[in-house]
Structure formats: C-alpha cells, structure tokens
Amino acid sequence: MILFDYTRAATVADALATGRQPGAAFLAAGTNLVDLMKGGVTNPERIIDITRLPGLSGIEAKPDGSLRIGALARNSDVADDPHVAKTYPMVAEALLAGASAQLRNAATVGGNLMQRTRCQYFTDAVSPCNKRQPGSGCAALGHATRIHAVQGWSEQCIATHPSDFCVPLAALDASVEIEGQGGTRSVKLTEFHLLPGDHPERETVLEPGELITALTLPAEAARFAGNARYLKVRDRTSYAFAVVSAAAAMILDGGKIGQARLAFGGLALKPWRVTEAEASLAGKAPSPEAYAEAARIALDGAKPTGEANAFKIELARRVAVRALTLAAAGTPARLPALPASPFGIV
C-alpha cells in the first residue's frame, strides 16, 4: 500500500472539493478499497475519509412512498431494517446472501455499488488488464473462468460485477443520487454501471470527484413486496460470490402476472436486467412455460467467453425459472435461514 495522505471530510462540500484532486479516493468502510490497496490493484495517493459525513446513513421512508437509503448506511443495517425487509424483501435477501456478517456490518451501500470486479487478472495487479491499465489488453480473454461474463462483454474486458445487492436494485428501478460540484443528479441504477465496450476503465457514470449520497427505491417498487425473491447459486453454501444469481418479482393480479421484474448477477459487468423478458410475462398466468419463455428471452444474445463459463447460460435460464417460481409462490414471512440459497427453503 502506498503511503497516502489522509483527510477526513467534515461535510459533503468538503469531500467534493478534495475528491476532485488527482489520485484521490473516497474511503467509506474500505472493505473493498483497502483490500484492493493491499493487493496493489489501486494505489490512491489521497484518501478522503467520508465515514463521518453527516446525514448519509439514514434509511428514510418518504411521503411519496419511496425509500431513501443514505450512501453510508451499512449493508447489515439496511438488511435488518424492518421497513426494508417488509417492503423490499428481495433487497434484504440479496444483502444477507452477500459476503459474511462481518463484512456486511462494515460495508456501505455506496461502497457496494462501487465494488470492483473479482476478475483474477484485474486483482493480480500484474496481468494485462484494460480496466486497470487501459490499452494493456485483456489477459482473461484467452483463459476465461467461471466468474467471467456471458452477457455484455467486449473484446476489451470480460469481467463481471460481483454485487448481490445491485441485482434487486436494478430490478426495482432504484436510482442513485449523486452529488458533484455542479449539484445533485439522479441516475437509474441500471444506467449507473457501464458495460466495458472500448473503455473498460470507465466503470460507472461517476465523474471524478462525484460522490454517491443516496439510493432511492421508488414507490412502485413496494408493490412487488408480496412476490419477490433473490436466488443465488454458489460453489459453497455461504460466503461465496454468485456463480449466477437472479432477482425475480411480480405483481399478481387476479391470477395473472400484472408486472414482472427480472435481473441477474454473475453474468455481466453490471446487474443484468432484461425488460423484454419481464414484458413477456405481463398478462400471463404464472406457469413454468411462461417462466421458461422469459428465461429464454433473458439469455438471448448470451455468449460464453470460454469453455469454463458456457454452462452459465443454461444455468442462468434455470435460475430465472426457479426465481420466478419462488417469487410467484409468495415472499416468505421470514427470510430463510440460508438467504437466497437453493437450500433456503422456508
């Protein structure tokens, strides 16, 4: 870890002013940043500690029915918030399926959005990696592993985004509140992360010095509360990144699906939401055939990046079908002991 300057920001304005300096990085919990600094993957010269910024850790139900979650709210606080658990159960389930209790107690909402890929060629700090060192190439491309992308990748980068939390957020049309020199702006979560294209070094729409201040779940999202699940397939029962995951939710209306939501984790460099698949479910009675059709549409255009991850396409279809089936069966009154696990049958 390089020797950095440490400053503690007292106000958001403070943070924005210092955050614009070259080589600056915002430190919240540090569960990802400190890890990357230890690995020499990222070497910020200036750490701006934003943990004391006032007013950024609240979870607040707004009069318009939306929910505002401060960027510094801890993952565990959000997951355990009774309103979140009741109204956005798949958000809680995804959070509780991520990492470990220790990490969730530290990690923040904003940090979760900003977490970097687990691509081995990115984290080893030496392999050619266009994300780490633009123009150096993509070492993963010749030896893709099970964690690499099958959707939305480019010849420049085949990494995936590791977040669980972002998957239901994408499905529920969450938006990200961003504070910058020019004021506040709001970006839909589905548009917050960028696909690699020709510029994998650009990972989000954040401009240098901009700060995430909150997340908002719209009022509409609450309507899915009764039928919403997050399902995460893993290589061990807990404390593992997703091989493939999905958030599925629906509004049932007189025995028919009024609206459906479907997003995936583990497939791409961003949470992978497919509105066409969602649309295919609207108006249909919940059925295995309808789910299979939605799953088929959702994986349209999927392409493996190597032998080792081709299986994820079929797996993702099955995960989608299962997640939709679970969602249709109704959100359980209490989250299962093994949240989001296929073995987490209530």
């Binding site: 440490y6 430190l27 569960t31 400190v34 943990t51 990492a99 470990s100 209790a101 220790q102 530290a106």
Partner: peptide, 26 residues
C-alpha cells in the same frame, strides 16, 4: 489479511467486523 477468513474478528461499536480491512485512522 483480506477479509476472507474471519480470524481477525473483533467488535467495533458493538458489531463484529474484520479488523484486517479497517484502517485504524478511520
């Protein structure tokens, strides 16, 4: 030393965390 094993777990402000990933200064 990377938040992957839990051997460094302590309570900070009453909550369990991985002390290896927390900068003391913060």
């Amino acid at each position: 030393d990377r938040g992957q094993c839990g051997a460094c777990t302590v309570l900070v402000d009453g909550k369990r965390i991985n002390s290896c990933l927390q900068l003391a200064v913060s």
